[in-house]
Computed example of a mutant assay.
Amino acid sequence: MAAALDAGADMVGLMFFPKSPRHVSLSQACRLADMARGRAEIVAVTVNMDLDGLSRINELVKPDTFQFHGEEAPEALAAAKVMQGTKVMKAISISDRSDLEQAHYYAVVADRLLFDAKPPKGSELPGGNGVSYDWTILKDLDLKKPFMLSGGLDPENVAEAIRLSGVSEVDVSSGVEREKGVKDSGLIRAFLAAAKGVKVPG
């Protein structure tokens, strides 16, 4: 967390999904959120969590945004947005252009969308698998809402991904880890330097 903040990350994610190697407890999340507050947007990442669970996170951690990374319907995002009083982001798993259709339904209620690669067959994780897709399918996509590029990004390819997709916001997890679930401060700094060094036409 400290490396990301010091390198200028605009958002930091806290993972609330027990099957993930990046899962944090509520007490850990509170400490990390206090470290980040006022320096970066705090994003609570959840997977098919019920409203009681969201409320508990909101009460204790006080995130700026909830990211929904499961099979949540647009109506679930709308309900959470009203009940929690936070911004909401929806992660959408894609592999080709046809998968982008669902984005228009979520864009009605979400404050931001995130396009991640579809997980490999048999994976229990909806994201953070280090899998990529054809970034060019996001080129010139107009949703009237901000959206982010995720999936298989690392310090070596993030600049190319930004240029090919035209997307100025990127998300990374496994691409800055020295082993699964363990972040590497050097890779974090390299990733942010590469991402922030790209000029996106607009």
Rank of each mutant, 00 (worst) to 15 (best):
residue 4 A to M: 15
residue 5 L to E: 10
residue 6 D to M: 14
residue 9 A to D: 09
residue 10 D to T: 14
residue 11 M to T: 06
residue 12 V to D: 05
residue 13 G to I: 08
residue 13 G to K: 04
residue 13 G to V: 09
residue 15 M to N: 07
residue 15 M to E: 06
residue 15 M to V: 15
residue 18 P to L: 08
residue 19 K to C: 05
residue 20 S to H: 06
residue 21 P to N: 10
residue 22 R to E: 12
residue 25 S to K: 04
residue 25 S to R: 06
residue 25 S to A: 04
residue 26 L to V: 14
residue 26 L to I: 15
residue 27 S to P: 03
residue 27 S to N: 13
residue 27 S to G: 06
residue 28 Q to E: 15
residue 29 A to Q: 07
residue 33 A to I: 06
residue 35 M to P: 00
residue 37 R to D: 11
residue 37 R to F: 11
residue 38 G to L: 13
residue 39 R to N: 09
residue 40 A to F: 06
residue 42 I to W: 06
residue 43 V to A: 10
residue 49 M to E: 15
residue 49 M to D: 11
residue 52 D to M: 13
residue 53 G to Y: 13
residue 54 L to P: 00
residue 56 R to Y: 05
residue 59 E to Y: 11
residue 59 E to I: 05
residue 60 L to T: 12
residue 63 P to A: 13
residue 63 P to C: 09
residue 65 T to A: 08
residue 66 F to N: 12
residue 67 Q to C: 10
residue 67 Q to Y: 09
residue 69 H to R: 04
residue 70 G to W: 12
residue 72 E to N: 10
residue 73 A to V: 04
residue 73 A to E: 13
residue 75 E to F: 02
residue 78 A to F: 03
residue 81 K to I: 03
residue 82 V to A: 11
residue 86 T to I: 02
residue 89 M to I: 14
residue 89 M to R: 07
residue 90 K to V: 00
residue 94 I to Q: 03
residue 94 I to N: 04
residue 96 D to L: 14
residue 99 D to E: 13
residue 103 A to Q: 01
residue 105 Y to C: 02
residue 106 Y to S: 03
residue 107 A to I: 11
residue 107 A to W: 05
residue 108 V to Y: 05
residue 110 A to E: 08
residue 110 A to W: 00
residue 111 D to P: 11
residue 113 L to Y: 09
residue 113 L to T: 08
residue 114 L to D: 01
residue 115 F to L: 09
residue 118 K to V: 14
residue 118 K to L: 11
residue 120 P to R: 07
residue 121 K to A: 14
residue 123 S to W: 09
residue 123 S to M: 12
residue 127 G to N: 02
residue 128 G to V: 00
residue 128 G to N: 02
residue 129 N to G: 01
residue 132 S to I: 07
residue 132 S to H: 01
residue 133 Y to I: 11
residue 134 D to L: 08
residue 135 W to M: 13
residue 137 I to T: 10
residue 138 L to C: 04
residue 139 K to D: 10
residue 139 K to W: 03
residue 143 L to A: 11
residue 147 F to G: 08
residue 149 L to W: 00
residue 150 S to K: 03
residue 152 G to F: 04
residue 153 L to V: 11
residue 154 D to A: 10
residue 155 P to F: 10
residue 155 P to T: 05
residue 157 N to W: 05
residue 158 V to C: 12
residue 160 E to K: 14
residue 161 A to Y: 01
residue 163 R to D: 07
residue 163 R to K: 13
residue 165 S to P: 01
residue 166 G to T: 00
residue 168 S to D: 15
residue 174 S to D: 03
residue 175 G to H: 03
residue 179 E to M: 10
residue 180 K to G: 00
residue 180 K to I: 11
residue 181 G to R: 01
residue 183 K to Q: 04
residue 183 K to I: 02
residue 188 I to C: 02
residue 188 I to M: 12
residue 189 R to I: 04
residue 189 R to F: 02
residue 190 A to E: 04
residue 191 F to E: 01
residue 191 F to H: 00
residue 194 A to V: 06
residue 196 K to A: 08
residue 197 G to N: 09
residue 197 G to A: 14
residue 198 V to H: 02
residue 200 V to K: 15
residue 201 P to V: 09
residue 202 G to H: 11
